[in-house]
């Protein structure tokens, strides 16, 4: 009971903070915060399949793309669409799709969930690194489809003028919902089964767990939130194109969940702030630098070199990331216990 009150208070105060930030922060820091918020949603859900369930997959860019396109198509007004689809006329169904923000986001999430369900059959026939390459291929195929179906996606030109409903109230709240949902999943019979699969899939089966179904469930859940996050992303930056949904996006999420600790949701939270903040802070690396009067010229990609090195270094020397597979609360608890004894 005491626990429940504490949790309710924490959720309420987080909502209060979101509300305060939305109304009182300057546009630039708020936009960084929005970016972090979206990546929190994406990284948390990615960690559910990769970290908690231990199914190392590389598809989030695909699911984010599906959610982003779906939401965008539902949000862009019909007249705007007629003008926007420049390569070929939009398919009739595209013109008919219209919805408010929340249903549009849910549609994005559900579309991703559905695709996840469809591909789970080939995906979970394989384990380990095969899974990684199949899911990587899937993320890649989604992008190819986005390029080649201009009647739906406007091809390489992408979609713009997406109404920007996504403010920090939406993003922050959905981020909080995602976090709570993840924690609730982990602390249920489903989460235990997911962790069991990560630790030893055969033993999990020997406990009567239908491992195929549990993996699919984690995959679909992950896809749902990645789709919703994609919808938020589309509305937040108000323009999307296939090139935004490359492996780079997945790579960023991978760094985040590895840094935070595979399986740790609070770790993911902290790591998202560090990585996204770091990306913003290291922006200078990509631009011209003047070192002792010598202009280095612009180096797009320098930040990614740094982050790739960070990932390698982490794997070599600090494989468990910040929190390992534990949550911040567990760490505080065990510290506290040690002090008492």
């Amino acid at each position: 009971m005491k626990n429940l009150i504490i949790k309710t208070l924490m959720i309420a105060s987080t909502l209060g903070l979101i509300w305060y930030a939305h109304h009182n922060m300057d546009p630039y820091p708020l936009s960084i915060l929005n970016n972090i918020g979206i990546f929190v949603i994406l990284a948390l859900s990615y960690n559910l399949i990769n970290g908690v369930t231990g199914q190392f997959s590389l598809e989030p860019n695909g699911f984010v793309a599906i959610g982003a396109y779906m939401t965008a198509i539902f949000l862009i007004p019909t007249e705007t669409k007629i003008d926007m689809y420049a390569l070929v006329d939009p398919a009739p169904i595209i013109l008919e799709m219209q919805a408010n923000f929340l249903p549009a986001l849910l549609a994005g999430g559900l579309a991703s969930t559905f695709i996840a369900f469809m591909i789970s059959v080939p995906v979970f026939r394989v384990r380990g690194d095969y899974l990684a390459i199949v899911t990587l291929g899937f993320g890649f195929i989604i992008k190819i489809f986005a390029m080649n179906t201009p009647a739906y996606t406007n091809g390489a030109m992408g979609l713009n003028d997406i109404p920007d409903y996504a403010n920090f109230l939406w993003i922050g709240t959905i981020g909080l919902v995602t976090f709570v949902a993840m924690i609730n999943i982990i602390n249920s019979r489903f989460g235990r089964a997911m962790k069991a699969i990560r630790d030893d899939e055969d033993a999990a089966t020997a406990m009567g767990v239908n491992t195929y179904w549990i993996k699919t469930l984690a995959f679909m859940t992950s896809a749902f939130f990645e789709g919703v996050g994609g919808g938020l992303l589309a509305s937040f930056i108000s323009t999307i194109a296939p090139d935004q949904f490359t492996f780079l996006l997945t790579f960023q999420l991978l760094i985040i969940i590895v840094l935070g600790g595979l399986g740790s949701m609070t770790g993911t939270l902290v790591a998202t702030i560090l990585v996204m903040g770091g990306m913003e802070w290291l922006r200078f690396l990509d631009s011209n630098m003047n070192i002792f009067g010598y202009d280095t010229g612009a180096h797009p990609g320098m930040r990614m070199v740094v982050f790739a090195m960070l990932l390698i270094t982490m794997m070599l020397f600090a494989r468990k990331g910040l929190f390992g597979d534990r949550e911040l609360t567990d760490i505080i608890k065990s510290r506290f216990k040690r002090r008492k004894s």
């Binding site: 190392f56 590389l58 690194d129 990684a132 790579f251 991978l254 590895v258 990614m304 070199v305 982050f307 790739a308 090195m309 990932l311 390698i312 794997m315 070599l316």
Partner: peptide
Amino acid sequence: LITAIGISFF
């Protein structure tokens, strides 16, 4: 595998 991805990106 993660390291290999890191090397590739690097």
